[in-house]
Design a protein around this nucleic acid. Sequence first.
DNA 1: TTCCAGGGAGTAT
DNA 2: ATACTCCATGGA
Length: 247
Amino acid sequence: MEFVGADETFITRYFSLDHDLQLIGRELGKDVHIKAALSDFWGLRIVRQPPWECLISFICATYKSVAAIRQMLLKLSEKFGEKVMLEGCDFHAFPTQERLSKASLRELEGCGLGYRAKYVLETSRLVCAGSFDFDGLRRMGYAEAKDALRELPGVGAKVADCVLLFSLGMLEAFPVDVWVKRIILKYYSEHFPAGFVEKLSCQKGFSDADYERLNGFGRKYFGAYAGYAQEYLYHYERLRTAKLKKD
DNA sequence: TTCCAGGGAGTAT
DNA sequence: ATACTCCATGGA
């Protein structure tokens, strides 16, 4: 393996190369759908992003397409992140807490954040002021840490689950977005009452109670590595529908 | 042009 | 608790 500007310890930790993928695959292989997803994307891992970066990124990611999210985060970094030279090219690091907490609402909106600008600003100020302690989360269980994160403006159940999964390594977290909702309705509907399935298929979004129900299913059905199931199923379904559009 | 996006918060029942 | 509504922007 080859990389520049990082040592092996960092790479191992960031890409969670310490996770026992073989074990996780055995634990998750409960049905044909997850087996197909595991097979198609075998090797995919849950990253360990810095919590701050992960938090802001997923606050920005609400109700936005992936392509638009990339643009938003790129602009945020270009505008507020420290410039880094690597292999003769200019890059920008993700903005620090201090820098974002001092940004103006207009500047943030200029990065295409829209109504998320105020959430990013308020959360940045809380984190920067020390009113929120990321390290404290590591000492909490899943439910408690999730509640603590949800105190932050712009952080609901889904964003909280993403932070717990992609930065704190709580692999039992099972974020439910529109894609995961579709996946559950499509492949796992027999685990729910028909009325619930029909209600969810008719509406675009879903309530907090509905979220907890879908999230609870994922954690109970897939177990301690539910987050890995989410990751594989998410990419499986996205690629499958992308292929479908071509034909 | 219209539609929808890796949701969350505010408000009225 | 639950239902309904608005949110600001950009890619397809």
